[in-house]
């Protein structure tokens, strides 16, 4: 499946596969199977990802969170010590756990980024609604996308207004107080705006039901794509169960 084919795939199919992959990969116990999952995800990304550079950049950013796991888990988890630095012990169990999390986390990220990175937010919202996700959550997602720019603009305006009166960021009480005031004002403005938006919706006949204009159609190839992906995921789960049981 090329990146062009990915664009033509029903967004519901992409989200189903992404969600299913996240669930299955997070359930894996064995390091070997998790590694296989990551390898499969990398192959999938190689075939489908339209822009490798941007994908790796995003992956790298997300791995900053994984770094925190490496900085804490192996050093705090009780178990067989493999390294001792003063009062701090580096345990084998912690190392294995951190490795497992890293492998699974990167596999899930690769799958998600490959499948959803190029999906329009409106398309995603529509697909989520068609997959029977709570309508309020779907619209919260769409509204966040719409208004995050407006809130950012308001924040910039406040920053400019402050800068025009000679405000400069410093490590001082005055800076903290000013930033606090600006953040507070942004929140208040956002709340006021949300009331006005609700009024604007009422004025155009909104009565509590949300509708979307996009209509999605699942084709045979979408069903084949979802079935094949779920088959691979099921194989991974079975392999994990087998390896874990044999090991026990």
């Amino acid at each position: 499946m090329s990146s062009t084919a990915m664009h033509q795939t029903d967004p519901r199919a992409l989200l189903l596969v992404a969600g299913g992959a996240a669930f299955c990969l997070s359930c894996l116990q064995s390091l070997v199977v998790s590694g296989t999952g990551l390898a499969l995800a990398a192959i999938f990304a190689c075939v489908c990802a339209p822009d490798w550079r941007s994908l790796l950049k995003r992956l790298l950013l997300a791995n900053l969170f994984v770094l925190f796991i490496w900085l804490t888990v192996p050093w705090t988890m009780p178990g067989t010590d493999i390294l001792i630095i003063g009062p701090v012990h580096f345990s084998r169990e912690g190392l294995l756990l951190a490795m497992g999390v890293t492998l699974k986390c990167n596999a899930i990220l690769l799958i998600f980024l490959t499948l959803t990175a190029d999906m329009g937010l409106l398309q995603m919202g529509c697909a989520l609604q068609k997959l029977h996700m709570p309508v309020k959550l779907v619209f919260l997602l769409l509204f966040t996308y719409r208004y995050i720019h407006v809130i950012a603009e308001e924040w910039k305006k406040l920053q400019t207004a402050a800068a025009l009166r000679g405000f400069m960021m410093q490590t001082s009480f005055h800076t903290y107080k000013t930033i606090g005031n600006m953040l507070g004002l942004t929140v208040i403005n956002s709340i006021t705006r949300s009331h006005r938006i609700y009024e604007a919706m009422l004025l155009r006949g909104f009565s509590g039901d949300f509708y979307l204009t996009t209509e999605l159609k699942a084709r045979r190839r979408d069903i084949i794509f979802v079935s094949s992906c779920f088959f691979v995921l099921a194989c991974l789960l079975c392999a994990d169960l087998y390896v874990t049981c044999c090991h026990v």
């Binding site: 769409l142 996308y145 208004y147 938006i197």
Partner: peptide
Amino acid sequence: DEQLFSSTVLEDVAFGPLNL
């Protein structure tokens, strides 16, 4: 900015008719 709340122009203009 308080009147237009949908993601795209078309979605916003279609909001009222959908409610009708």
